[in-house]
Each structure stands twice: as structure tokens, then as C-alpha cells.
Amino acid sequence: MPGTAPGAPPETAPQAGPGATPGAAVPRRRGRGGLLAAGLVIALVLLALLSAGIGAYRIPTGDVLASAAHRLGLGGAPLDRVGESVLWNVRLPRVVLALLVGASLGCAGALMQGVFGNPLAEPGVIGISAGAAVGAVAAIALGLTFLGNWTVAACAFAAGLGTVTVVYALSRSGGKTEVVTLILTGIAVNAFAGALIGLFVFFADSGQVNQITFWQLGSLAQATWPKVLAVLPCAAAGLLLAPLYSRRLDLLALGERPARHLGVEVERLRTALVLLVALLTAAAVAVAGVITFVGLLVPHLLRMANGPGHRFLVPGSALAGAVVLVAGDLAARTAAQPAELPLGVLTALLGSPFFFWLLRRTRRRQGGWA
């Protein structure tokens, strides 16, 4: 936030006043973080239940809980044949996939902003999303089917990881990576990826163009349990590893030189986190297409609510990202029934005005950008 480094540790926040007890602000901030985390968990559970029941075939929340209890051997009762099929083969895979994709994008956004020390950073900056899009579009346009229904997702995942590897390699000089060089290289790669996508679209037939367009707009309409199982290992690994870097991200927010004096191996930390961001983002894009603004705005909202400390910000962004995407997917399915809005379009429509407001608010508080 203005006047404070994006990843500064909570202990560096000013005290409430001259007579404040040293460190008194920290327990309050931590207590607020606990309440916020509890609120996010409750919101996620309620949204998941609503999303599982709402749709063309309505299922009351009580029936959803009864069916889940029956499946877990805790009593309850199964629904009728159609209800069980809709709930377990259509709705729940979509809810779980939204949760995993949202958590991955939110967490990746928090890590990116911490690595770059810039609240405007998000996973797309270094070309991960664009690279994954090139892989998926190429698979569709060329008619590749070597992995059956998994071909597009596998190509997107491999291309996303490959792109970030290339960007990072091109940004290194003398064993070091400059953040500015990394960002500028990512911008160039994004432009090149956009040109490749345009070229593939030009040579694709009308059916392939429709498929490419739908994939680029982002959607969870094709969610299945196999897709959930495909993204689960990458998402789980990334989400479990990310909080382990929270303290070092707080130290990095003080500046590279102070962080080195405090024992942080900055280059190794940056390499590890960029690869972690690539893993989370490429997995999410591979199964859901390009969904924008989640990784940018979610960490901002939490930073406004609870401060910049990464001990809460990293796992909190995962929770909040899951909440945002489950809610967004529910809105995409129901806002224009029987049609379905593309999820990526919806997040951009809602995220862009908020981002403009955030920019104006930041500029007004700082008295300009100069």
C-alpha cells in the first residue's frame, strides 16, 4: 500500500501512538487475520454449497448435504438418479475445479507481487498465461490428439512452464536476475505469444476458431473429475510450499541488500518462487483457460484488509482466490441462463473498474506518481 513496501513485515508497521506498548499493533493485526481467514473459510463453504445446488436442475442445500453424508457413510440419503448424476458428475467437479484454480491464481499473484516488490505484478507479467495459451491454441489449430482429451491441457501446461523457463534464462546476466529485465522480457514474450496465437487463428478453420475463442475467454464448463485430479497435484504442491517462503518474502520487501545481510539468498529465492508461480499458473490455465485479474486483485484486497505481511497474505490469497472464482463461476452459470458467460470475461469486467479505482486511490494518496 502507499508508503509501505508490498511485502513489508507486519512488525515494521507504525505503532498506534506515543503511549502504545511496543509490538501492540502486531497481535491486533494477527487477530484480525485470524478472523478474516475464518470468514473466508465460511464464505467458501457457503458458496460451494450454493453452487452445488443452483442451476437448471435445482437441488436444495439440505439434499446436497444428505447426499454427501451418504457418500461418506455418515447417514443421510441419496438423491434420485438424475439428481445424483447432476450433483456428482457435473456440479461438484466444477466447484472443486473452481476452488483449485482460484486458489492457485490467488496464491501465484501474492508470490509475484512479493518477488517483484510491486503491487501491479501478476502471473501474466512474465508470460506464463500467454505461453500456456500458445500451447493450447497450437494443439487445437494443428488438430493434435496424441493424448486424447488431455492433449490441449498437456500442451498448455508444458508451454507455460517452457515459456517461463525461457524468460528467466534470457533475464539472467552474470548469475543474477534483474527484476526490470525480467518484466521487460516477459512483455516481449507476451507480444510474441500474441502474434503466434493470431497466426494459428488465421490458419484454423471455423470450428477450431470457435474452440480457441472459447478457451481464451476462460471457462470451467468442461470440468470433470479427471481434470480435477490432473490439476490437484500441481495445485497442492504449490499451495503447500508457498507459505514456507513467507518470512523470506517479508525480508525481501526491505530491499535486496538488507535481505542478503539478514541471510536471504535472494537469487535462489527468486528462482524458486518464479518456478512455483509457473507451476500454479500453468496448471490453472491448462484446465480453465485464461482467467485474468484474480491474481492481481485478490492480494490487493487482503493487503488493504490486513496489511502486507506475507505470513497471512500468501495463504489468505489462496483462500480468497478460491472464494472469488467459486462465486464468479456461479455468476457465470446463472446470470444469463440458459446461456453461460465466459468466466474470464466476467472476472475482467468486474476486475477492471476495481483496478481503475485502486489506481486513482493510490495516486490520490501519494499525491501523484512522480
Results as ranks from 00 to 15, higher is better:
82 V>P: 01
62 G>Y: 08
172 R>A: 15
203 F>H: 13
2 P>V: 15
227 K>R: 15
368 G>A: 06
63 D>L: 09
318 A>Y: 05
177 T>F: 03
312 F>L: 14
339 A>S: 15
260 R>E: 14
140 I>K: 10
154 A>G: 11
21 T>Q: 14
144 L>R: 09
145 T>N: 15
197 I>T: 11
104 S>P: 10
135 G>I: 04
85 S>K: 12
169 A>W: 10
87 L>E: 06
98 A>F: 00
173 S>N: 11
27 P>H: 06
296 L>Y: 01
210 N>P: 02
15 Q>V: 14
329 D>C: 07
218 G>I: 02
186 G>I: 08
3 G>R: 07
65 L>I: 14
201 V>E: 15
318 A>V: 05
191 A>H: 09
308 P>C: 06
70 H>K: 01
171 S>R: 09
270 R>Y: 10
327 A>V: 07
357 W>T: 11
163 T>F: 09
62 G>N: 05
241 L>I: 10
43 A>Q: 01
224 T>G: 01
193 A>C: 15
109 G>K: 03
331 A>M: 14
302 L>C: 05
146 F>W: 15
93 P>V: 02
239 L>E: 06
73 G>A: 10
331 A>T: 11
315 P>M: 05
16 A>R: 13
193 A>I: 04
276 L>W: 12
44 L>G: 08
328 G>C: 10
105 L>F: 02
150 W>N: 13
1 M>K: 09
282 A>M: 09
235 A>H: 10
18 P>S: 09
305 A>Q: 05
253 A>S: 14
36 L>G: 02
311 R>Q: 14
41 V>N: 01
256 E>T: 03
255 G>H: 08
273 L>A: 03
225 W>C: 00
278 A>S: 14
217 L>S: 11
34 G>M: 13
167 V>M: 04
341 L>C: 02
7 G>K: 01
94 R>E: 00
115 V>I: 14
238 G>Y: 11
188 A>L: 10
52 A>P: 03
243 P>Y: 01
174 G>I: 08
287 V>T: 09
341 L>W: 04
204 A>L: 02
81 R>H: 12
302 L>A: 04
281 T>M: 11
78 P>S: 08
70 H>N: 14
41 V>Q: 02
298 V>F: 10
123 P>C: 06
162 G>H: 05
110 A>N: 07
115 V>S: 04
155 C>K: 05
38 A>E: 05
233 P>T: 08
101 V>F: 03
30 R>G: 06
282 A>P: 06
154 A>H: 05
279 L>E: 05
249 L>Y: 13
143 G>L: 00
326 V>G: 03
331 A>G: 04
227 K>F: 01
87 L>W: 06
40 L>W: 06
262 L>S: 04
40 L>I: 09
132 A>F: 06
92 L>N: 03
207 G>A: 11
284 A>Q: 07
4 T>D: 07
57 Y>E: 02
243 P>D: 12
148 G>Q: 00
201 V>I: 15
228 V>L: 06
173 S>M: 11
80 D>N: 15
286 A>R: 00
345 V>W: 04
84 E>D: 15
264 V>K: 02
61 T>P: 10
38 A>T: 13
205 D>Y: 05
